[in-house]
Simulated scan of single mutants.
Amino acid sequence: MVNPSHKSTKSKAEPADAKMELANRLFFRLYQCANMLHKTGTRAVEAEGLTTQQWAVLGALSREQAAAGMSMGDLAKYLMVSRQNLSGLIGRMERDGHLAIAPDGQDRRSRLVTMTDSGRHLWQVQALPKIRAYYGDILGDFSVNDLAHMLHYLLKMLENMQRLDQAWVGAGEEDGS
């Protein structure tokens, strides 16, 4: 006769083990996707002299709510990167004439990052058509429903990661974003 307590322990452990195995595979696939996004996304816009990081900055600044510019801190938070990493990137884009940095008229300690006319032309005329083609190549066989579900689950994961990050920052760990 099978020990009922042994059976229930095993049945409880198996789903937990399966969930951990799936979690491991999921996070590894996300890692691979992030690396391939960087590699293939940069290839999609390299003729314009852009990287995926620069693409993200121009995309953030092209939004209607950023028309007047964004502070370095707000841009770093929006992109979820450290100010240190963003600073070098912004400096190179400013040197290339795509961005302008100026003191914030409302807070002189803060600097506003805006797209220049050159940056706007680069984004709208040169980069966006290639980015849209890239999206089509990558997502062409996904339905609108597939994309909506994927976005939902990625946002849910992102919210959980942000909550964990804030808990760690609140516990005294350095904010590594």
Results as ranks from 00 to 15, higher is better:
Lys39Leu: 07
Leu151Cys: 09
Leu22Thr: 08
Met150Phe: 14
Ala34Phe: 04
Gly172Ile: 02
Met161Trp: 05
Ala171Glu: 06
Asp137Gly: 15
Pro4Val: 06
Ala56Ile: 02
Leu86Val: 08
Val144Leu: 14
Leu75Phe: 02
Leu79Ile: 03
Glu48Phe: 02
Val125Arg: 14
Gly119Lys: 03
Lys12Ile: 05
Asp146Tyr: 06
Phe142Cys: 12
Trp168Cys: 08
Glu64Cys: 04
Trp168Leu: 15
Asp74Thr: 05
Ala167Ile: 07
Asp137Glu: 13
Gln65Phe: 11
Leu58Val: 01
Leu26Ala: 09
Asp17Val: 14
Pro15Met: 01
Ser11Glu: 12
Ala148Tyr: 12
Ile131Met: 07
Ala47Lys: 07
Ala18Leu: 14
Gln84Arg: 14
Gly49Cys: 00
Pro129Arg: 08
Arg92Phe: 01
Pro129Trp: 03
Leu155Lys: 11
Glu14Ile: 15
Val125Cys: 04
Asn35Gln: 14
Gln84Val: 15
Gly176Glu: 13
Leu147Asn: 10
Leu155Gly: 08
Gly69Lys: 00
Ala171Pro: 06
Ala34Lys: 15
Gly91Asp: 04
His152Ser: 13
Leu58Tyr: 01
Ala133Pro: 03
Ser71Asn: 01
Lys77Arg: 14
Ile101Pro: 00
Arg92Cys: 02
Leu37Arg: 11
Thr40Gly: 08
Gln162Pro: 00
Ser143Pro: 06
Val144Ile: 15
Pro4Gly: 07
Met157Leu: 14
Leu89Asp: 05
Thr116Asp: 00
Met70Trp: 04
Val125Asp: 10
Gln54Met: 02
Val81His: 08
Leu79Val: 05
Trp55Tyr: 10
Asp117Gly: 09
Gln124Asn: 11
Leu89Ile: 06
Val144Ser: 09
Pro103Ile: 01
Trp55Lys: 07
Lys10Glu: 11
Leu154Arg: 13
Leu99Gln: 00
Leu154Thr: 08
Arg163Met: 09
Pro103Asn: 01
Asn24Ile: 10
Ala18Arg: 15
Gln106Tyr: 05
Ile138Glu: 08
Ala76Ser: 05
Pro15Phe: 00
Ala133Ser: 11
Asn160Arg: 15
Glu174Asp: 13
Phe27His: 06
Gln32His: 10
Leu158Gln: 13
Met36Ile: 13
Leu99Arg: 00
Leu155Ser: 10
